[in-house]
Design a protein around this nucleic acid. Structure first.
Ligand SMILES: [Mn+2]
Ligand SMILES: [Mn+2]
Ligand SMILES: [Zn+2]
Ligand SMILES: [Zn+2]
Lengths: 161, 161
DNA sequence: TCCTAGCCTGGACTTTGTCCAAGTCAAGAA
DNA sequence: TTCTTGACTTGGACAAAGTCCAGGCTAGGA
């Protein structure tokens, strides 16, 4: 269920030497976090790097475990703080597909839903057709001002079938 | 954070008074639990009674608090055990609309989705039109055998607007 | 009525998350 | 470059939600 990120990501090579450099494997999430007035600490950088990618939905403790491999002294509290801040500025989203730990998703800029394997828990980002809100008729809205719909699709992935 | 639901919501004229008997105030959930080979204890009866009704979505601790009013010595462990058993036989369902405690819903026999107030947390049962699964095209299924879709609609209830 | 498998209980324990006082440091100012 | 300072980080205490267990209790059949 877990896949190992083997990117080398040597911070040694002096980051923003020039705008033209654009190093390989540079974190997209980290890029988005620049220029927001954020104090860039080693801890925040590592959390952003660990959480980068597609179909990534890690728990706080998974983020912490991976962060420790790069920065052994990073604390659990800092991971929670950093994730919470990134959520509040809208650069990552929280996903709660089960009753367990919340998961954190760097794919915050393209609205999407989730497809979860009932066997192994793998989560994929999916984009259903149409507006999910349209399926809820006014008579079923109980006077609410409905503004969003979250959909969790469930089934078995190819490996678990 | 929790607010009391003051909506009147007369369920009165809805549910077919058809099958003749329909006893007074007898718990419908409790009725369903009879004849399943269940040992009927005072604790289980109280949990079933507390959890009965429409648009009911209580946490385990809320169930425990209400059960204690009728049976002061009932333990938290028994409430968890009983809820877990009722879930496993399909007489109630678990609902996880936020990252907090799971909620328990006696409306297990009519498939439905949930409409949650972002202000006060009130949860209503709703029935969207059409099959939510139909909105997910094959190209977005990643080879999964998709069997279910859970939808959480969010917005502000009349009281919170 | 008696027996006993299954149920109930209090408390220990785990997981997930929050909060705090004290120490540390990134980044602008000089 | 060095200084300053408010923001960030840390370890640990604490809290909420849920699980597990040994021992006592009891519903319901014999
Ligand atoms: Mn996602
Ligand atoms: Mn419901
Ligand atoms: Zn799977
Ligand atoms: Zn409300």
């Amino acid at each position: 269920m877990e896949s190992e990120c083997r990117c080398v990501l040597s911070t040694d090579s002096f980051e923003a030497r020039s705008p033209a450099v654009t190093l390989t494997g540079m974190s997209d999430l980290l890029e988005r976090l620049r220029g927001r007035g954020w104090r860039l600490t080693a801890q925040r950088r590592v959390v952003a790097e660990v959480l980068d990618g597609d179909h990534v939905h890690l728990t706080a403790d998974e983020v912490h475990a991976r962060a420790i491999e790069r920065l052994p002294e990073i604390s659990r509290a800092t991971v929670y703080n950093t994730l919470g801040e990134m959520v509040s500025i809208g650069e990552i989203i929280e996903v709660a597909t089960d009753g367990r730990a919340k998961r954190y998703d760097p794919n915050a800029h393209r609205p999407h839903q989730h497809l979860v394997c009932s066997g192994c828990g793998t989560i994929r980002d999916v984009r259903p057709q149409g507006d999910p809100l349209a399926a809820l008729p006014p008579a079923e809205r109980f006077g609410f001002a409905v503004t969003a719909a979250e959909v969790t699709y469930r089934g078995l992935c190819p490996d678990c079938s």
